[in-house]
Amino acid sequence: MSVISTKKLVKKFNGLTAVNGVDLSIEEGEIFGLLGPNGAGKTTTISMLCTILKPTSGTATVNGYDVISDQEAVRKSIGIAFQDPSLDHKLTGRENLRVHMGLYGVPKDERKKRMEEVLKLVQLTNRADEPTQNYSGGMKRRLEIARSLLHYPKVLFLDEPTLGLDPQTRRHLWEYIQNLAKKEKITILLTTHYMEEADLLCNRIAIIDEGKIVVIGTPDELKEKVGGDTIRIKCGNPKKLASSVKGKVQKDEVLIVTDKAEKLLPKIFKTADTKGIEIFSARIDRPSLEDVFLKFTGKEMRRETGSFKDIMKRRMRSR
């Protein structure tokens, strides 16, 4: 049974189509990634799934409940960590969590235990009695993820979970997310425009561009669609090697495109050896999700930073 399912989901803002007929089917326990550049429609899709926005047309169910007719049941089933922080800065970490549990009606006798559990999961136990205005960006994001887990949601939405964080914090956060998928057994839908993030965390990825899903698959499947690996060899006699291993010469390198680079490499070495060609270096290039994106959308992923100023600018624009 799919936990999240959408059919021909469309959202238009004043004639501008942000989401243009998205079909998704996400199974229980998956970490599913929506990958695409800013403005591709990722956040709009998530907003419709978590009942903040009403779809212009199409249907969607989350945990079996319709996002239009059964909003309250959907809201009870989901947890969300927003792209822009949504904590109360004047309240401490624990106070933020307590308010959340009250709003979601977490059983009273479980509250304390649950709160400490999620704090431990994101390693904020020691700082939880400080107002969140003292927190760093990474800590805020972690607390927000912890908060979204308090009411035992079936589905967790993470909207750009590491946007604007430094590389080290990002790596930590990835660990938390992987850890949580194991411990909490929940389905996670995350959006990102970082290729490595999608590659590392997700079981399946949908690439979304201009409101449409371009391709869906596991990271490996997607990479396979781009084509094989490329072996690059520097050697004493490139032309001779190229003709004997069906490669081509590019500058001073021999390039061989193949599906099974690992198996082919020893054979190439043997061939070179028998022909008396000295090999200086060899390297295997794997296709990245970046290549996948390029292939399916015909454009490069824009690299955008997530500084506070950019976030504010984007927000002003999105008004």
Partner: peptide
């Protein structure tokens, strides 16, 4: 502006 409203809006109240 600071986002807390969203926290309330997506809660089941």
């Amino acid at each position: 502006e600071f986002g807390f409203l969203k926290e309330i809006l997506v809660s089941p109240i």
